[in-house]
Nucleic acid binder design. Structure first.
Length: 273
DNA sequence: TTGTGTTTTATTGCCTCC
DNA sequence: GGAGGCAATAAAACACAA
């Protein structure tokens, strides 16, 4: 036990503590022990408002036992907690008087109530994060599938084109002169020409591993609005990240912001730490 | 009735603030 | 250094299935 604070132990000296100042400190000494004999048959804590309790029930209880607060007391404490979850000394004494409790009990109740609220809040935050994660995962999966689909499309079109080139007149050499040779490698050139020659799909070589430059360049062959199936999920995911990175916070900061907005209780005091 | 899990009340020790 | 907050914990009270 720390020297600065003396605690009232209801199992040993209930109803016999000396209430000092704001009710946080209790004295347990010789005098307390003497008076304990006189009052050991009384109920702990509840001597100020006897009418709140079922006399018979409580009189039958052993005085050493811990007693629960009555529904009325809990109700009033809950109402007070909703108003303000922190307890300034004046409010604490008022509540204690009103409820027939020791100020220390009121303080303890608020402390425990804050702890319960925090636990619930952590559960809510966890659920929110989990659902966000699940939806991101679903998004990712759909993007991967779309990617695979596009790759196979590119492969089949390339195959068709090569078969067609094998039987056609060699006209490609004429087009080469029209292209900016210094900016296009031979590999890129081949893919580009093939794409432009193809008539089936307007855009398919986007994810060709042999020609990543085409994808990365600002001048994409494939404007976003032509490939909603592929681009939109990415846009959606990135917009989340962008929002989060604006102020240097992670994606999850948004979640917590949303969580805070969802609070049913007026608890602006809660600070995520 | 009893064993077991959960909730509530209270204590303890540490930390921060003034 | 005291007051008060929080985390961890103990222990009583309670709920409930078997």
């Amino acid at each position: 036990m720390e020297s600065g604070r003396l605690f009232f132990n209801p199992s040993t000296c209930q109803g016999n503590m000396l209430y000092l100042g704001n009710g946080e400190s209790f004295f347990r000494g010789a005098r307390t022990m003497i008076s304990m004999e006189e009052t050991s048959k009384k109920r702990p804590f509840f001597s100020l408002q006897e009418e709140l309790y079922d006399e018979e029930y409580y009189d039958e209880q052993s005085p050493e036992k811990k007693r629960r607060l009555t529904p009325e007391q809990v109700h009033m404490l809950e109402k007070s907690f909703e108003t303000e979850n922190k307890l300034e000394p004046e409010r604490k004494t008022q509540l204690a008087k009103k409820l027939g409790l020791q100020p220390r009990q009121v303080a303890v109740w608020f402390q425990n109530r804050r702890a319960r609220w925090k636990t619930k809040q952590l559960e809510r935050d966890y659920d929110l994060l989990k659902s966000s994660y699940d939806s991101l995962l679903a998004n990712y999966d759909s993007i991967v599938k779309e990617n695979e689909k596009l790759k196979s499309e590119v492969a089949s079109l390339t195959e068709k084109l090569q078969a067609k080139d094998a039987t056609a007149e060699p006209v490609v050499s004429q087009k080469v002169e029209l292209l900016p040779v210094e900016t296009v490698s031979s590999t890129q050139f081949n893919v580009k020409v093939e794409d432009r020659l193809s008539t089936g799909s307007a855009g398919s070589a986007v994810v060709d591993e042999d020609a990543p430059q085409l994808v990365d360049s600002g001048d994409s062959y494939f404007p976003n609005d032509e490939y909603p199936g592929c681009v939109c999920p990415i846009d959606g995911a990135q917009s989340e990240e962008d929002d989060g990175s604006d102020d240097g916070r992670s994606y999850f900061s948004n979640v917590f912001t949303a969580t805070e907005q969802q609070h049913e209780e007026p608890l602006g005091w809660w600070v995520w730490s």
